[in-house]
Structures are given as C-alpha cells and as structure tokens.
C-alpha cells in the first residue's frame, strides 16, 4: 500500500489563533479518507492546507510539511500543487459566466491546452467520470454552469477538478448543500473515483464517512485525536473522546 499524502507536524493559524496544533497523518493512495469532527475542529482548515488553499486567506499561515507523491508542497509553486491536488467545495461554485464546456475546460486552458480535439475528449471523459455526461451532452456549449440544478452543479465542479487529472481530490463537505438523491449520486461517484485517485473528504455526517471511506480521522479542537480504519473508528475507537463523539455524546 502506497502513501499519497504525508502530513508531518502541520500547524495552521488564523491571525494569532492556532487552528491546527501539529497534525501527523499518512493518507493511503487510491482510497478514500474521511475527516470528521464537530464544527470548528479544524477539519476544513486541515484539508485546505493540503493544497495550500489555506494561505489564500490573508490572515492565515501554516507550518510543517505536507508531501504529495513524496514532494513537499511548500517547496513547489502553489499553482502546481493545486493542479495535482484538486478540490471540491461545500457549495457548488461553477463559473456562472462560462458554459458547461468551458467550466470543465477552464483548468486545461490555463495549462496551455488549446487543441480542440484534446479538449473535447477530456471534457467528455471528465463529465462521464463525474456521471454528468448524459444529462448535459446536448447543452454543453449552450448553457451556463449556473443553469444546472444544485446536484448537477456539484458534479460539474467535480468534473472540472477531474479534467486536469489530479492525483488527489479534496472534498470539503461536498454533499452538505444537496438533497438526499444528489448526495447518493455523489457518494456513488466517490466509489468510482477512488479506483483511480486518492480522496480526502471532510464530512459532518458520520454515516457518510462510514459509507464512503476506508480510513477515518477524528479531529477535535485542532488536534487529530484518532486516525484508523473506518471500521475500527466506528466500532471500537481507542480514544474516549472519539467514542463520545461517534455515539453522539457531544458535537
């Protein structure tokens, strides 16, 4: 089993407040890892450090190492990190001024791919991977990304992230703004995707974590309390605090 993301002693701040107090974690390649914990525990901050999105907040800073495929992300340009580590956000955020096609192609065009044929192929492939192709193939270049339903928009954002073929996909509560049926589609999608890439998903929904992820990490007040196989975490946690949380005693 290979390690895709290796986090060592990661600390993060907002202004003077320390939000993460030294996190260590090794994320298994081609598996899904869930990050759970009560709100404000630092789980979003944690995954935003993995692709250096954390530092886009002017107040924020971080310390420690994050290795993706063996390379320290703080040693390479943030732009390259984010291409290798894709991200899907809590609320779908397609570019409203671009067509569906242009949304998916946006990342590729940035990297200098302008060949029509290649773009067409990758756009189709990405939309298929995101299970959206059949629903949008006739309106690809006619409608804006914002014209789709919420669930479709989120899958469009997944397709957009997939198009640049990242090694790792970060998902920050990707289904929290969606209805149950759309949520189920996203979860199915995660099963498909983890055949090919590594997924780290933040969720406040423990059932979701147990459904989609092989590994789960439990965060509390900026600390990684416990990190283990999902099964172990949900059936036989070794830390009292994890047990309290999953049995609903707080949070």
């Amino acid at each position: 089993m290979a390690t895709a993301v290796e986090v060592h002693d990661l600390k993060a701040w907002f202004g003077k407040t320390e939000a993460l107090h030294g996190i260590n974690m090794a994320v298994e390649a081609k598996h899904a890892t869930a990050v759970i914990g009560p709100s404000g525990c630092g789980k979003s901050t944690f995954i935003r450090c993995l692709n250096r999105m954390h530092e886009t907040n002017p107040e924020a800073k971080s310390e420690g190492t994050v290795r993706v495929g063996g390379v320290d992300v703080y040693e390479m340009p943030a732009v390259d990190v984010r291409r290798r580590v894709g991200m899907v956000f809590q609320k779908p955020n397609p570019f409203p001024t671009m067509t569906i096609y242009d949304n998916v192609a946006a990342g590729l065009k940035l990297n200098g791919t302008h060949n029509r044929k290649i773009l067409d192929d990758i756009v189709e492939h990405s939309l298929q991977q995101a299970a959206l192709w059949d629903e949008v193939k006739d309106i690809l270049k006619k409608q804006s990304g914002a014209s789709l339903s919420g669930g479709q928009q989120q899958r469009l954002c997944i397709a957009r992230a997939l198009a640049v073929s990242p090694e790792v996909m970060l998902m920050d509560e990707p289904a929290s703004a969606l209805d149950p049926i759309s949520t189920a589609k996203i979860e199915d999608l995660i099963f498909e995707l983890k055949q090919k890439l590594t997924i780290v998903i933040v969720t406040h929904n423990m059932q979701q974590a147990s459904r989609v992820a092989e590994f789960t990490g439990f965060f509390l007040m900026g600390n990684l309390i416990e990190f283990d196989k999902t099964e172990k975490i949900f059936t036989n946690p070794s830390d009292k605090r994890t047990e309290d949380y999953i049995t609903g005693r707080f949070g």
């Binding site: 732009v79 390259d80 609320k91 957009r160």
Partner: peptide, 24 residues
C-alpha cells in the same frame, strides 16, 4: 467561492482575477 474555485484549479492570482473576478 468563485475565487477559490479558480485557485483550486491551479490558477495563478492573475488567472484567478481574469477567470473568476473580472468575468463575473
């Protein structure tokens, strides 16, 4: 979130401004 979407795709700051800010 529009800015973040662009940055998460690996856009540089200027590309983010062009794609997500000026366009919108």
């Amino acid at each position: 979130p529009q800015r973040e979407a662009a940055l998460a795709l690996g856009a540089t700051r200027w590309e983010m401004i062009r794609m997500a800010v000026l366009r919108n």
